[in-house]
Amino acid sequence: MMSASTEAHEKGSPDFVVAHHFDSADTQFDAGRLGIWLFLVTEVLFFGGLFCAFFIYRNWYFDSFVEAHHHLDKQMGALNTVFLITSSLTMALAVRAAQRTKRSETVNMLFVTFLLAGCFLVVKYFEYTHKIHDGLLPGAMFSAQGFATQHAGVFFAIYFVMTGIHGLHVVIGMGLILWILIRAHRGDFSSRYYAPVEGVGLYWHLVDLIWIYLFPLLYLVG
C-alpha cells in the first residue's frame, strides 16, 4: 500500500490510495457512487411523504389550496428556481473541472455554487418574513384574516414544512460545498480521485430536483 502511495506522488497527483478492502480504484469509485445513489433514494422517499400529504390535502381542500397559493410570490419562486438551476450548472462544471484536474476552475465553480445557494436562502428569508408578518402560518398559528375558505392553514403547514426541510437541505449542502471547496483549494482532488466532489454534486442536483417539483406545485398550481 505504501508503495502505491509513493507511486502516486511520483505521478505528480495528490496522494490517493485505494482503500485496502477494494480491489481497484474503479471498484472504489463505483461503490461510492452506488452508495450516494442509494442515499438519494432515501431522500426521495423522505420528501415523498410530504408530496403524498400535499396531493391528499389538495384533493380534499382544493378551494383552500387555490386561494392560499395566490399568497405565495411567483416572481420570488421563479427567481429562486433560476438560482438553483444555475447553481446546478456550476456544480456540474465544478465536477467536470475536478475530473480534468483543473484546481482553480474547480474552486471557482464551487464558490459560485456556494454564492447562488446563499442567494436562494436570502430570497427564502424575505419570503418567510413576509408570510410570518401576514400571519400566513401553519395550523394553529394561522392568523391571517379575510380568507373565504377554511383550510388555508393546512396549505401553509405543508408549504412551511416542505420548503423548510428543503431549505435545511440547502444549508447542509452549503456546508458540504464549503468542505469540498476547502479540500479542492488544498489540492486534494485530481482526475484520479474526485469522488467527494462528485458525491456532493449528486446531492446538490437532488436538492435542485426537489425544488423543480416544489416550485410549480406550491407556487404555480397550488
Binding site: E43, L45, G49, G139, V161
Partner: peptide
C-alpha cells in the same frame, strides 16, 4: 426504501406536538 418515510413521519409528529402545524 421504507425507513425514510418513518423519518418524515416522526418529524411531522414532533412538529405537530411542538407547533401544532395541523397536518
Amino acid at each position: 426504501l421504507a425507513t425514510p418515510v418513518l423519518a418524515i413521519t416522526l418529524l411531522l409528529l414532533i412538529l405537530e406536538r411542538a407547533f401544532q402545524v395541523g397536518i
